[in-house]
Design a binder for these strands. Sequence first.
RNA 1: UCCCCGGUAGCUCAGCUGGUUAGAGCGGGUGACUGUUAAUCACUAGGUCGUUGGUUCGAAUCCGACCCGGGGAGCCA
Length: 466
Amino acid sequence: MTVPSIRTALSGSISPGTPVTVEGWVRTRRDSKAGFSFITVSDGSCHHPIQVVAPAELQNYREQIQKLTSGCSVRCSGELVESRGRGQAYEIQARAVEVLGWVSDPDTYPIQPKQHSYEFLRDVAHLRPRTNTFGAITRVRHAAAQAIHRYFDEHGYCWINTPIITASDAEGAGHMFRVSTLDAVNPPLTDNGNADFSKDFFGRETFLTVSGQLNVEGYCLAMSKVYTFGPTFRAENSNTTRHLAEFWMVEPEIAFADLTDLADLAEDFLKYIFRFVLENCAEDMVFFEKHIEQDARTRLQALIDSDFVRIDYAEAIDILAASGKKFEFKPEWGLDLQTEHERFLTEQHFGAPVIVGNYPVEIKAFYMRLNDDQKTVAALDVLAPGIGEIIGGSQREERLDVLQKRMTEMGLDQHTYNWYLDLRRYGTVPHAGFGLGFERLISYITGMSNIRDVIPYPRVPGRADF
RNA sequence: UCCCCGGUAGCUCAGCUGGUUAGAGCGGGUGACUGUUAAUCACUAGGUCGUUGGUUCGAAUCCGACCCGGGGAGCCA
């Protein structure tokens, strides 16, 4: 007796008549007076549940099988047979249905075979993977993660696990979560009356990382092609459909590379992931197309087939100014692009992903490379329709003197970043990298409009349930 | 943090220009029927209308405060 996944059982690779056992959770049960019940069972391995035909002759038919409700866990053994009904090619003619776990109160079991609101499902985040939608999201998320690792592996990158606890604050990416073992109520105090972090676990003030970039640059200037893929934390009070306090970020960093190389990487990389997901999650993508976003697949395919638009920030400003469109904020050189501007460019003007490059130096981080015009830095954002900024990156400032000057201008403590400056003192090379928000990528692929629905247990201001 | 919108049964929602016992569908229970497939049909149970003050003879309905949720903006990935 084999115990295949439901995916395997339905794949056609097992010949009819083979004895099999499937294990999973009941979606629905329908009784027939002709003397049997239909039980649809799902195990997460694929979109479709398998139909189990349980005959009334089974010894626990009246006592147990007829009392199965949504959510019960079962182990069903029998023969895999070609289905006599429509809707599935194969089903299981059961010889035994063992109930592993009952639903103690079917009346209040939250997951019903019906449409639920996403808001409600967020309140039952531990049970929502049992729904069609979240099963599909979970499989796509997994496939995308696999695609990322594969892409980098095939292209000679090393995966670098940068630290989650960091001492460098003010990395320029927003507020950080403090990591401390000090007594929160009565911390040891300095003479000034402030908390004395020299008595803390690490002997200094520490935080959760907002980016692995600075650390990974060290490995880049040794291994040439590297990337990080791990959790990232931002203590921003952001309440939007595209921000999380805890999210996963992918940060490739390449040596001997400039902004054009980086843009090439971003485009090739995204296309690879989309191709991989379309091929490996075809069934789930059809589901998204049917129920979440009508052009979920065609949108990805069009993107794979097309060249990304590449423009400079200055051109973007010109296009916006010449559009004749009334923006709430007037586009003006020197100011950052507003969400409405980004949306106009990617959704209306180009109708495609747009890579915007070379932003004014004043609005970008200290480590971005100063261009020869002294006015702009070699930074880029990849804007995607419906999501906005999905990637942000730059060529890094590799010249020690220029970097030090910028740090001074921005009031950064060079002592803290001494190790980072070492990378410019000892064998510096041009290098570049970007950050890709993994959940934004999943949002884009699936068409799920709220980022809280593409991560298993979302952390946002005021909520850290589960 | 700011600006809008919302909170009525386990879920999705109607009721909201104040007026008797608060409704439907799904889900649950019972029964009928059927190789069914988010089955169908009948019956049935289930609600301190987010909380708290106020206005009123009377509040789910009007007003204030608070709590929670959603959307948009900013910050950004």
